[in-house]
């Protein structure tokens, strides 16, 4: 049990905690580098997809093409950067949209007792569907565009945020300061936002980081299955899917986009872990 001395000590700063785990800093740097490369290199004309050229088709990585050329003779590195914009964009879109939807559902379920049971059971039912399977069905029904993939994956991941928000709201709504705010006549929406939401930002942030990672994996899975975004817009998953035909003589076509997914997801997960440890010292002990 914490003694008076330790409970009086100020919580260690975020920066200090991050510095204690250099792997988190490295992962953050890697992720920022990936994002910067995907958006800046093509913008400054440092990489380009290049025109199609039959002569160069399936050229291996080397001096002419750093990461090789695909079946149409297009530069793999250049395509990787452009595809990364879509893959990362979908991940971020899902993280944001599912957080907003999840926060709303979770706050309502936690605050209004009458709505709690139906909403909670609905969340249970939604979570009974495995992510790829539900996303697959949603995309099948609404059609595969970038917006629909983001929407489908947000439907899949919003219940996870909602569950966390609801649980935290149930605890916080009983705290004295919320009671005080209510006694002062503060309106419920104001209490929900200023008193409850502000206190659960960190678990939401942590979860959103993980959802960013999961969504990128799921999008890659959908694209690999051929039911993701329009194949004319490249994503890393679509590049892997296209490369399958040449698995025996040009494995690099699969390997590089695959590694791009893995590296992005890995760095996001390490950052998420680091954030969780830094923002919630109680959880850090458990993992």
């Amino acid at each position: 049990m914490a003694g008076p001395a330790s409970s009086a000590a100020a919580p260690p700063s975020l920066r200090k905690l991050l510095m204690q785990r250099p792997s988190v800093v490295v992962a953050l740097a890697v992720f920022v580098l990936i994002v910067a490369a995907c958006f800046l290199l093509p913008a400054f004309g440092l990489t380009s997809i290049g025109g199609m050229s039959v002569r160069n088709r399936l050229t291996g990585p080397g001096a002419e093409y750093m990461l090789g050329a695909d079946a149409f003779g297009r530069d793999v590195l250049g395509r990787l950067m452009v595809a990364g914009q879509t893959s990362l964009g979908i991940g971020l879109g899902v993280a944001l949209l599912s957080s907003v939807a999840g926060v709303f559902i979770g706050l309502v379920a936690g605050f209004f007792r009458k709505l709690d049971t139906p909403l909670s059971r609905l969340i249970d039912a939604m979570m009974a569907f495995p992510d790829i399977l539900l996303a697959l069905s949603l995309v099948a029904i609404f059609g595969g565009s970038m917006g629909n993939v983001i929407l489908a994956l947000s439907v899949v991941y919003a219940p996870r945020i909602a569950r966390i928000v609801r649980a935290s709201t149930l605890v916080i709504r009983e705290l004295p300061y919320v009671e005080a705010a209510r006694a002062l006549g503060t309106r419920t929406p104001t209490i929900m936002v200023t008193h409850v939401l502000r206190n659960i930002v960190s678990p939401i942030l942590v979860q959103a980081t993980f959802i960013f990672a999961y969504a990128m994996l799921a999008e890659a899975g959908l694209s690999f299955l051929g039911v993701g975004v329009d194949p004319k817009i490249p994503t890393w998953g679509i590049m892997v899917n296209e490369g399958r035909q040449y698995i025996d003589n040009a494995f690099f076509l699969i390997l590089f986009p695959g590694l791009a997914i893995a590296l992005s997801v890995l760095s996001l997960q390490i950052v998420g872990d680091g954030l969780r440890d830094a923002l919630d010292p109680k959880l850090a002990k458990e993992t």
Binding site: A213, L217, A220, G221, F224, G237, V240, R244, I247, D248, F251, I254, L255, G258, L259, I261, A262, L263, V265, L266, Q269, I270, D273
Partner: peptide, 17 residues
Amino acid sequence: MLAASVPSFLTGLVFQR
């Protein structure tokens, strides 16, 4: 963490190849 980050289709395709 790495195992959870590598898409399973990549692992599968590497094994297959």
